[in-house]
């Protein structure tokens, strides 16, 4: 190295908003009333949570929305680094996709394939965090 090389330090903050779109807005509104909204494609019948407004596989708009159970199956999970928080993918009953969310339990005891149910928060605002997480309800 011929000469010393300096580094200049800066920090950037980026304000940000995200448009949910009509299908996801239905879902977020439903959460206030403890409803989980799924979309149903009229051609392939795929039931999606998160809901879609357009089926990319069948290439057609989706007009049907139903509410599904807050119970489902744990497909996968991990524990966040340096904490006790667990999260994973949950397939809700009667749906063909899965939802990323927090899971209560312990690594080593919690099993993939176990049944879980949504735990609702009081004072819901239409946020994905209106569901506090999913707790194990049996194998």
């Amino acid at each position: 190295m011929a000469a010393e090389s300096w580094a200049v330090h800066q920090k950037i903050e980026i304000p940000f908003q995200y448009t949910a779109g009509p299908a996801v807005t239905r879902f977020l509104e439903g959460l206030k009333d403890k409803l989980i909204v799924a979309s149903v494609c009229s051609k392939c019948g795929r039931r999606s949570v998160p809901p879609l407004s357009f089926c990319g596989r069948c290439w057609r708009p989706i007009a049907e929305f139903i509410s599904v159970s807050g119970e489902g199956t744990l497909l996968s999970f991990t524990r966040r680094a340096g904490g006790d928080v667990l999260y994973g993918m949950i397939q809700l009953e009667g749906t063909d996709s899965s939802l990323a969310h927090y899971v209560t339990g312990e690594v080593g005891r919690l099993r993939i394939g176990c049944k879980v149910a949504a735990v609702w928060r009081a004072g819901r605002t239409g946020s994905i965090l209106d569901i506090e997480g999913f707790r194990e309800v049996g194998n």
Partner: peptide
Amino acid sequence: DPIWERTMMAGAVGNFAVMASTYVH
């Protein structure tokens, strides 16, 4: 995704860990 993923499981390690748990299973 700002709604479905960022809240719980953003970042490379956590994402891989979730997938790896399925693979192990």
